[in-house]
Design a protein around this nucleic acid. Structure first.
Lengths: 152, 152
DNA sequence: ATTAATGCAAAACCTTTGCATAAAT
DNA sequence: ATTTATGCAAAGGTTTTGCATTAAT
């Protein structure tokens, strides 16, 4: 199983804690899925996650992975990505910290980096006022090439 | 067929022009799909578009709608929305102008408003520099309730 | 004439749902 | 004991692909 560094371990613990607090058990399978997702620098599909876990000897059924990902997304611990370019049907998932952040997404390798903090001004978030639109949340994704894919 | 006002007509013409310039014919069906999408204040699914056209007597096959939507998305004339809340499988599409803009998206009715201009600073777009990440584009979506859904 | 687009059917695909088993509280 | 979660199989539903027909250049 992939090793997590200290800060990742904290993120994992907090996600599992939120899971429990929302009324769901932190089962071994769910821990494995969350840990594998957290350890991956790139967004993964449900199938990929199941395959990786299986290759390590941690057999987790594909639909347990699906259900765990849905649960993680529900509690804000996973971000769902749909291919912006080729419109492929398969959803990719990235682990999310519990602080507000934005994402850098590499179009070549599905690599995801969290940009801490927000950077949007009050005025920017109030952009809907002119229409009487009540903005409740926002999502800012940056697409491009990561350092490694840019050189290759 | 839905009537377009003058500014919408310009947007439609420009989208069809881009279509032709990218090597695709502006067929009657494609015109109808683009026009119907442009006239709708809310994002629509492929099925909804086909149904609406059919109800008006403009029978357009569902897969022609699918292919037209893919084409519109490819040339930047349509924006693909995936349900952020319930993770429903069906994709919704909204017409896009050819100027850079962001979106207000009503979580209740799939209403979409274009926010003209960008509002992001140079520094905000350079957010990837610290990682050596080359940002090529970004997408900023505001979710919330439109004026009508907020009162209902 | 040659190329491109449509539309039907069928397939492919991802994802969800039933249900029995297994685990946990 | 009761509740919850897992996992297989099967179904569900959206989207894509082949292919013949039709339209357009």
């Amino acid at each position: 199983m992939p090793q997590l560094d200290a800060s990742q371990q904290i993120l994992l613990d907090r996600a599992l804690e939120r899971m429990v607090r929302s009324g769901h058990a932190a089962t071994p399978q769910r821990r494995l899925v969350a840990q594998e997702l957290l350890a991956s620098p790139c967004a993964l599909t449900a199938r990929q996650l199941a395959d990786r876990l299986g290759a390590q000897g941690d057999r987790v059924g594909v639909m347990t992975v699906y259900r765990t990902l849905a649960l993680l997304a529900e509690i804000g611990a996973a971000y769902v990505l749909h291919d912006h370019l080729s419109e492929s049907a398969e959803a990719h998932y990235a682990f999310c910290s519990d602080r507000h952040h934005h994402h850098l997404i590499c179009s070549a390798c599905w690599g995801v980096w969290e940009v801490e903090g927000c950077g949007l001004s009050e005025a920017q978030v109030r952009v809907g006022d002119a229409w009487g639109f009540q903005v409740q949340s926002h999502s800012l994704d940056y697409y491009g090439l990561c350092a490694r894919c840019a050189t290759a």
